[in-house]
């Protein structure tokens, strides 16, 4: 089908964007359009106003700052995937992006768009959650920083207010040589994941875990950190990890039901995938000499 009629706006500056957001009712921001356009073509959404932010300078790009790596909201997935900085310092994000769509959708799709849309099975917001990203939000009176723990308000619902827009995502990289693992299950490569898991670890010189993060996504309405299982990993020796607390935590989540799978099967997948992710994190960890 075709998108229903709308008024098209193409602000050239953040100020123009701010004015539009403050004055228009039932408006949607058009970033890469790889979720919004299908929803409009299918007439799931019918905004009266479409605000195309593709021409606002400075919203795209990857910068290393003292506070972390800042990825502009309009940075295309293809550009994040080919970034040497991201490959070297945020390898988990690179690894996850290989599973996001296809070359045509990654050429347009943006990290900010995905993080504002918040599909429960989307990889990019999930990676923001496990990496404790900070969302830099521009609002009429300046900026505010929203931690990942407060960004996810529910199914397709972020903490972004109506007059606000996402400026950038800031991520503090883990220590050099940290272990990272990612696993997801989808019917075909590049499809929306039915379930997924991710793990990050750091270890001491004698091979004991000093820091861990675990996450399941596609299971509940928002990506879910497995905090108790993270704590249970601390001090455990690599190679003899007790994976059961992580698996049990993933299997205890309040899994969604949809046309593809039952909640039981989704919980089963959550357990399998967190185990795979954690095992992979152990193999990618660079052991200190």
């Amino acid at each position: 089908m075709k998108a229903p009629p709308f008024q098209y706006h193409r602000p050239q500056t953040r100020e123009e964007l701010g004015t539009l957001l403050s004055s228009l009712e039932n408006a949607k921001i058009l970033a890469g359009g790889q979720s919004l356009m299908p929803m409009m073509n299918l007439r799931v959404l019918a905004p009266d106003h479409l605000i195309d932010i593709n021409r606002i300078p400075g919203l795209a790009g990857i910068r290393e700052t003292p506070e972390g790596i800042e990825i502009g909201a309009m940075t295309r997935q293809a550009d994040i995937l080919s970034s040497d900085v991201v490959k070297a310092r945020l390898p988990l994000l690179s690894r996850a992006l290989e599973h996001v769509g296809h070359i045509q959708t990654r050429a347009r799709g943006t990290i900010g768009g995905s993080c504002c849309h918040l599909d429960p099975s989307a990889e990019q917001p999930a990676m923001c959650a496990i990496l404790d990203a900070e969302f830099i939000v521009t609002r009429p009176d300046g900026h505010r920083i929203v931690p990942a723990s407060e960004w996810f308000e529910g199914l397709l619902q972020s903490a972004l207010g109506e007059q606000e827009f996402l400026e950038a995502i800031r991520i503090k990289p883990w220590a050099k040589g940290h272990g990272y693992g990612f696993a997801e299950y989808a019917r075909r490569h590049g499809d929306f994941a039915i379930a997924g898991g991710a793990a990050l670890i750091e270890a001491s010189k004698d091979g004991r875990i000093t820091r861990a993060a675990l996450l399941s996504f596609g299971i509940e309405a928002s990506p879910r950190r497995l905090s108790d299982a993270e704590a249970a990993l601390i001090d455990q020796p690599i190679g003899k990890l007790d994976l059961e607390p992580a698996v049990a935590a993933a299997r205890a989540l309040d899994a969604m039901e949809d046309v593809h799978v039952t909640p039981d099967y989704r919980r089963h997948l959550a357990g399998v995938l967190i185990r795979r992710a954690l095992n992979e994190a152990c193999t990618t960890l660079e052991r200190q000499p």
Binding site: Y8, L30, G33, Q34, M37, P38, N41, D52, I103, Q104, T105, A107, R108
Partner: peptide, 8 residues
């Protein structure tokens, strides 16, 4: 390469 149905 882009999907021309998802670009205005």
């Amino acid at each position: 390469p882009v999907r021309s149905c998802l670009m205005l």
